[in-house]
């Protein structure tokens, strides 16, 4: 290569080729843009504002239900934002040509998908769960909600993160498998909202579907997995946690596998 002797040449090989640069760019798109504080502001504001309304001004509010309410707000709405954020990540790049441009450089396709998966997974976990969760924890503890311990609360937040990653990897996988933006957004949305109908039709699915991570599995208001974990009570089932964890791995693996042969 003419004129390159003064440079230190990138030495990554195999699937790691281009990974460092792509990861750097992926994280920068969260943390060196307005993205991180906008998302943090929205979710910290939305979740904690509603929670504050319940805890501090609602008449006759039973503080024993606070964790269940918190789980509903924090578990139901952020997945929608994740789907919206992720719907254009792969399919948009395939259709616009930026994926072809990036992959005309010495970068592996595995590195490309990982750079979409990891920075976004960290970004949504921090801005939609962790940062709002810290403030929510303070509010809940001060209000006397039955939080077992900071560790239990953190474990609950971890399950929220798994819930978000389920939708994140599902949307990512659909972006790899199809070039239809409509399909990439419609299928996860339909799944997110359709679970309650599925549960009505096939109640046994409450032991599997991510819906019951944050929303009540039956007629009673309480009993969802996350509030139980935060309260230090054994959840009605670990099935939904296992199911979303397996799905995250499967969706990620399918994304990595199928993208290897994608024609750009």
């Amino acid at each position: 290569m003419a004129g390159n002797s003064e440079f230190e040449i990138v030495q990554e090989q195999g699937w790691r080729r281009g990974l460092h640069n792509l990861m750097r760019q992926g994280f920068a798109s969260w943390w060196k843009t307005n993205n991180w504080w906008v998302q943090t502001l929205i979710w910290t504001g939305v979740i904690n504002f509603i929670l504050a309304g319940m805890l501090w001004s609602a008449q006759g509010f039973n503080v024993q239900d606070a964790l269940s309410f918190y789980a509903i707000f924090a578990g139901l709405f952020p997945p929608i934002a994740v789907i919206i954020i992720m719907q254009d990540v792969v399919v948009g790049e395939k259709l616009s040509g930026t994926a072809a441009w990036v992959l005309s450089k010495p970068a592996s396709r595995t590195a490309f998908i990982l750079s979409k998966l990891v920075p976004n997974a960290v970004g949504v976990a921090a801005t939609m769960v962790l940062f709002p969760g810290v403030l929510a924890f303070v509010q809940l503890v001060f209000a006397g909600a039955p939080v077992a311990s900071p560790l239990h609360f953190l474990a609950g937040l971890g399950i929220f993160v798994l819930n978000l990653w389920f939708y994140l990897t599902l949307t990512l996988m659909l972006g790899v498998l199809t070039n239809s933006r409509a399909a990439v957004i419609a299928i996860p949305m339909a799944f997110a909202f359709g679970q309650q109908y599925l549960l009505n039709m096939v109640p046994v699915l409450r032991y599997v579907l991510p819906w019951t991570l944050s929303l009540p599995p039956g007629e009673a208001f309480s009993g969802a997995v996350v509030p139980s974990v935060m309260a230090g009570v054994a959840p009605f089932s670990w099935g939904p946690v296992i199911f979303v964890s397996v799905c995250i791995v499967v969706f990620s693996a399918v994304s990595l596998w199928r993208f290897q042969d994608q024609e750009l």
């Binding site: 003064e6 440079f7 230190e8 990138v10 460092h20 640069n21 750097r24 843009t33 616009s96 450089k105």
Partner: peptide, 25 residues
Amino acid sequence: EPRFYEHHTVRETLDFTARFFFKGP
């Protein structure tokens, strides 16, 4: 039809491209 990341500046686009090949100085 060249398409680059829209949130990048011109300089950042070239920097991003260069770092696929060079890590320094």
